[in-house]
Design a protein around this nucleic acid. Sequence first.
DNA 1: CAGCTAATCCCTT
DNA 2: AAGGGATTAGCTG
Length: 816
Amino acid sequence: MSFGGFLENTTGGGGARIVADIPYSNGNGNLIHNMPAAALAQSRLVTPPLTKSMFNSSPGLSLGLQQPNMDGQADMGRMAENFEVNTGRRSRDEEHESRSGSDNMDGASGDDQDAADNPPRKKRYHRHTPQQIQELEALFKECPHPDEKQRLELSRRLCLETRQVKFWFQNRRTQMKTQLERHENSLLRQENDKLRAENMSIRDAMRNPICSNCGGSAIMGEISIEEQHLRIENSRLKDELDRVCALAGKFLGRPISSLANSIGPPLPSSSLELGVGSNGYGVLSTVATTLPLGPDFGIGISSALPVMPPARTTAGFDRSIERSMFLELALAAMDELVKMAQTDEPLWVRSLEGGREMLNHEEYVRTFTPCIGLRPNGFVTEATRETGMVIVNSLVLVETLMDSNRWAEMFPYLIARSSTTDVISSGMGGTRNGSLQLMHAELQVLSPLVPVREVNFLRFCKQHAEGVWAVVDVSIDSIRETSVAPTFVNCRRLPSGCVVQDMPNGYSKVTWVEHAEYDESEVHQVYRPLLSSGMGFGAQRWIANLQRQCECLAILMSSAVPTRDHAAITAGGRRSMLKLAQRMTDNFCAGVCASTVHKWNKLHAENVDEDVRVMTRKSVDDPGEPPGVVLSAATSVWLPVSPQRLFNFLRDERLRSEWDILSNGGPMQEMAHIAKGQDHGNCVSLLRAGALNANQSSMLILQETCIDAAGSLVVYAPVDIPAMHVVMNGGDSAYVALLPSGFAIVPDGPGSRGSGEATSNGDGPLRVSGSLLTVAFQILVNSLPTAKLTVESVETVNNLISCTVQKIKAALQCES
DNA sequence: CAGCTAATCCCTT
DNA sequence: AAGGGATTAGCTG
């Protein structure tokens, strides 16, 4: 019996499947008799008919088997292992195997040489030597698909069969593929985990009572394209938000498990919908998004959210919900602002008399769903709109608005104080587009008769097109239920702000909308028409201030400064002087309005006129002020004189003696003049009062005046002469001590009335066109900060104020 | 047990 | 028939 001949009858793997009825052994060495041929065929373990004698043959047999045919040999080898005859000892094949293993351990030294020299004596199991693998790998790196020639060359060099080389490459490729697959798999798994976690948190959020109110799933079916866009934008904002969160290391806590138990069942359809919605960016965003997102409540939900969700969850999760609500609110507010800015009739109608625009409240209610809930009892609405050309480009203006310090500097007489309390998003792609922040501000009209408006609001910036931006503010007092006692709010800002569009000439067209609800009872009768007109806190004043301030900045930055200087001042001197004047005017405003910039104590003295407000504070450790007890007195009166005439009178240094005791009874001289605008009324100047007698040195007065469509200011303060010399030479103005006094003038009368929704006081006195004049003094009554205020001091300042008012009235020939 | 590698099976081009 | 993907045997850690 020739094994060779037998093997020739077999074909590779799929050869004869005749199985003799012989005893077999399984792997464990147990004999299996009469194994069915079908089973064997199926198992592909046995190809040729075998007999027990084959395995019992002489030790040399195995070698003989391997010679003639690779395939046959391989099958035989497998055969030998799987159907090992139960000889009770280690099979020959095993011995051979272990030997070949050790051969490979030796490396390519002797055995491989042998393999090359001798006819291929194949080992059933072996691995290519490290050298061979190294070579194969090297080629694989360059070319994972070598052609036949390359393979042949390699096989010669490595003493491998071409088939082996081919197999190796095939296997290597599949290996690469599986590795890749495995890697992808793990990525997908990670992603899946994230999504699951996200889903969990959303589910938890959906258990919130708020969501059961919102009807989110109900409106899901028919969302408009616009809402879709908002959603996409929303999710993008959330991505941004999360990126910021992640950077800040503000990781959210896992939802507390008790939450799941304590509240009712989740809303499955909603949570499903929302889960999809919040991943609008799918694959693109998922890798970057590592934190559970805040729940997507859907557009339109904000109107149904007057209260914060119960504080059951962790603070982090609450915060996330809060931020999500802020985003919804900001988007709704932006939408409203843009419509308010761009729609004319019937939303805005022109009043017959004044020609100003008035908000059509019925149309407003029809058009918008309320963002921040119902108007509080006793509050009146003020809605104004104004458009103006401003010498500033949209990017600069947007940057200014989004920076609380620059914002306050842009509107110095309007904003007493401002701060950014929280940045929710700083914008996308390095721009302010999408920037969202929480801000706090105190807004003022310069009169003690109008309380400061303290507002907490969201400010949201969005680019609508190239060169078109919008910045919207909206109060958040109704949403944010702070842990501290709810602060009394005297004003809520409905969506307000501006739409800016660049113009080709370097100007931009700014449309301002100011929409607020405030407690009118706090406002003195005499100022109510002003507020309703929009000249108080309304769009007209914002635009007028913006125009004036931008013009001022443009002039100061241009090299061609219109100079009217009597004494040449250096550029540094001008800068110092302007800075000093700015500080003076800021302090003046703070004294008039009792903003919290200074800690004023209000006095209620009996011997003080009803409409004069007197306050004191201690000045300590401020080099910009004399130390001691500072008394501030302010009042506002109505005068039947046009604002322009009143302003011109008060700022004229030659008429100073008519009202200013500092003038020593004579005219003053202008020593220096720095223009701040086209109008000569916008300037900083240095005045000198004549001396009473020869041995008395004259006195210097720093004065700043400004005027725009909304009103005007004359602010002044006596200054130390040596200190002023330092300033005019460019020295630091911070150490110049001064206390400001001055006037604020706003128009009043038919011309200023007409728009807004606030019911103007019908029972007030009928006025002709006139002005509202605020007079305010800050006086040092004692240079010891600890000194007690005396009745005499209060009387003195009260007298000073009423005398000044009387003198002005007399000079302008108004009867008192 | 998972993972790796050489080899085989079997289908497509 | 060549090539390649799927699968497997036979090992290793």
